[in-house]
């Protein structure tokens, strides 16, 4: 992405477009990745309520996954889950696993 020079940015760091945080992919911050076990999940939505990044994906009244583009890996979902359905694993390990499988 080409960043603007100081003369082209709106003064005062005012953001003129709503929802601009969508362009900020906070998933790059993650050092631990939540792994959701849908077999244990009761779809109680406690993780959905607690997730500070709204990264719990839901479709048709069911939890379907976690949006890793924005998930910072804070682990709150894992800590709050009453059925221990979310495990936190090291991001590097998770990536390596995904690579090995793929």
């Amino acid at each position: 992405m080409q960043l603007k020079g100081w003369k082209d940015l709106a003064i005062g760091a005012v953001m003129l477009e709503p929802g601009s945080c969508l362009a900020y992919e906070t998933g790059s911050w993650r050092t631990q990745r939540p792994i959701l076990d849908l077999e244990k999940c009761a779809h109680c939505f406690i993780c959905w309520i607690f997730c500070p990044e709204s990264s719990i994906q839901v479709r048709g009244g069911k939890v379907t996954g976690i949006d890793l583009t924005y998930c910072k890996g804070c682990g709150i979902c894992s800590a709050e889950c009453p059925r221990q359905a979310i495990d936190m694993v090291m991001e590097a390990t998770a990536r390596k696993g995904a690579k090995d499988e793929g």
Binding site: L3, K4, G5, W6, K7, L9, I11, G12, A13, V14, M15, L16, P18, S20
Partner: peptide, 22 residues
Amino acid sequence: PVTYGSVVFHECYYEYKRQQIA
């Protein structure tokens, strides 16, 4: 709608300060 007071790290913070100098 506009947003005031957002987080701006190393990518742009300096540019906003340069504006203040001007």
